[in-house]
């Protein structure tokens, strides 16, 4: 072994790639992804009258979108918490978390966890695609107790 590097992920992706990662992350954290804004009779606008709301940006992210994708968003719920991923005015991925009976700190932690898992799932898909395109073989994929995803990769070089 010669070196260990820590890389900060940069997410530059279209909305379909982002939303796919969001949906996988949400389900892994026990959220139910809502197909439309009024599913289960809950909407963020109504909840904000009685509940706290926290909005966070996903660091180092850019949602590449055309005119048709500007209003796209994805909502999910769990235990009275509603979360909504969208593209903010500056083009970054953002998550808004709302929930009655939750403190701002709790909502922020939920939003950060969702955002982190979204980036994790996005990076997993991107790495698999990029490594396959470069002829690298994924020989093992595991998830450890801290929910980190571990990949073992082999690459034959001349």
């Amino acid at each position: 072994m010669s070196a260990v590097a820590v890389l900060t992920p940069i997410v530059v992706a279209s909305w379909p790639a982002i939303s796919s990662a969001v949906a996988t992350a949400a389900v892994s954290l026990g959220f139910k992804v809502l197909q439309d804004a009024n599913q289960e009779g809950v909407s963020l606008d109504v909840e904000t009258e009685t509940a706290r709301k926290v909005t966070l940006n996903v660091p180092h992210s850019e949602v590449v979108t055309g005119t048709l994708g500007r209003d796209q968003r994805l909502r999910m719920s769990r235990d009275g918490v509603m979360a909504e991923f969208s593209r903010d005015a500056r083009g970054r991925a953002a998550v808004c978390v709302t929930g009655a009976g939750y403190s701002e700190e709790q909502l922020r932690a939920i939003g950060e966890e969702l955002g982190g898992r979204m980036v994790q799932q996005y990076m997993l898909t991107k790495l698999k695609n990029e490594m396959a395109a470069r002829g690298m073989d994924l020989v093992e994929e595991t998830v450890d107790e801290s929910q980190s995803i571990r990949l073992r990769v082999r690459h034959w070089q001349n």
């Binding site: 820590v6 890389l7 900060t8 992920p9 997410v11 966890e113 982190g116 898992r117 979204m118 980036v119 994790q120 996005y122 990076m123 997993l124 790495l127 690298m136 801290s146 929910q147 980190s148 995803i149 571990r150 990949l151 073992r152 990769v153 082999r154 690459h155």
Partner: peptide, 11 residues
């Protein structure tokens, strides 16, 4: 190569 993707997305 051994890669670890943390829950925050750091690799």
């Amino acid at each position: 190569y051994e890669l670890t993707i943390s829950p925050t997305g750091e690799v």
